[in-house]
């Protein structure tokens, strides 16, 4: 039996289908003014694996895509409004709101989403946006932490993300975060679970292909948090990671765990150059 010949058969048999599939060529402009980069050259650290990177938006149906093109149609925007109220609401023992320290969210949070997760020098750790939000709540406001993947957290992430929409994702991968980034990369390529599938098996090797009813994207997180029509709520990146790991018949990691923080940093860096889109709409 000839291994090469078999592989060749497999490749030829797959090719015609793959050629039909793939990301589409639609352009994303939100509210007729924010031009989103949904396709661009892969960042240098990824160039041996991918030539181009694509937002998940490119893989969705026209109907789903349309919902993200206007804030009046985007179901996630009600949560942004709720988070704006939370921003101004005094909570906790210190008698403070987010606004007490950060004033207007439009000004203070512009550009923030684009560079997270990032290194916090004082704490000596890589922080996700969720970790930073909870740090403020606990230590600056004396308020209770929010559940890592809960509705309030997702909404606040959405409000903060909106202030960076259209800006390029630009997370740092070297310096003090290097070790965490390497760890995230290792997790990305590890084949977990009884199905022995890695993130890369689906989102690097097979993006553009259908897996049952799902059109596989590159699994980018530039659009998070994302409103999913499937569960009619805002979803955080860690909730999505958990779902994807579970689907390999694996024991998942916990949202907010060191593993998922490292994975978030790494996955975010695979999207360096795409626009911050959150809150996006997906199926």
């Amino acid at each position: 039996m000839n291994f090469k010949a078999m592989t060749a058969i497999a490749v030829i048999a797959t090719a015609p289908l793959a050629a039909l599939a793939g990301p589409d060529e639609d352009k994303l402009v939100v509210n007729g003014e924010i031009e989103m980069v949904t396709k661009t050259a892969a960042p240098a650290h990824l160039s041996d694996a991918l030539d181009e990177i694509y937002s998940g938006w490119r893989f969705r149906s026209d109907e789903t895509q349309a919902l993200q093109m206007d804030d009046f149609d985007n179901p996630a925007m009600v949560f942004v409004d709720q988070a704006q109220d939370a921003w101004d609401t005094v909570e906790g023992t210190e008698g403070k709101s987010c606004a007490s320290c950060h004033d207007s969210v439009e000004e203070s949070m512009a550009g923030v989403r684009a560079v997270y997760p990032k290194w916090n020098e004082e704490a000596g750790e890589v922080r996700t946006l969720a970790m930073q939000i909870n740090d403020c709540r606990e230590n600056k406001m004396g308020a209770e932490k929010w559940k890592y993947t809960g509705g309030q957290m997702a909404a606040m992430e959405a409000l903060i993300s909106v202030q960076s929409r259209g800006m390029p994702v630009n997370v740092a991968i070297d310096g003090p975060v290097k070790e965490t980034w390497e760890k995230g990369k290792e997790i990305y390529y590890t084949r977990y679970g009884q199905l022995e599938l890695s993130c890369a098996n689906c989102h690097e090797q097979n993006y553009g292909n259908m897996i049952r009813a799902d059109h596989l994207s590159q699994g980018q997180i530039n659009g998070f948090p994302t409103y999913r029509l499937k569960n009619a709520k805002l979803n955080t990146a860690h909730a999505r990671f958990k779902g994807c790991v579970r689907d390999t018949r694996a024991e998942t990691f916990k949202p907010g765990s060191d593993e998922f923080v490292a994975l978030e940093l790494y996955v975010a860096s695979r999207g360096n150059g795409l626009s911050v889109e959150g809150p996006s709409v997906r199926n």
């Binding site: 977990y192 009884q194 022995e196 599938l197 958990k242 579970r246 018949r249 998942t252």
Partner: peptide, 24 residues
């Protein structure tokens, strides 16, 4: 096929963090 994406359907060990079916 060395390294194929296709899962093994008659195998019970050698997995990394195997789960209880799709419960996570």
């Amino acid at each position: 096929f060395d390294g194929t994406v296709m899962p093994a359907f008659y195998k019970v060990d050698g997995f990394i963090r195997p789960g209880d079916a799709y419960t996570g």
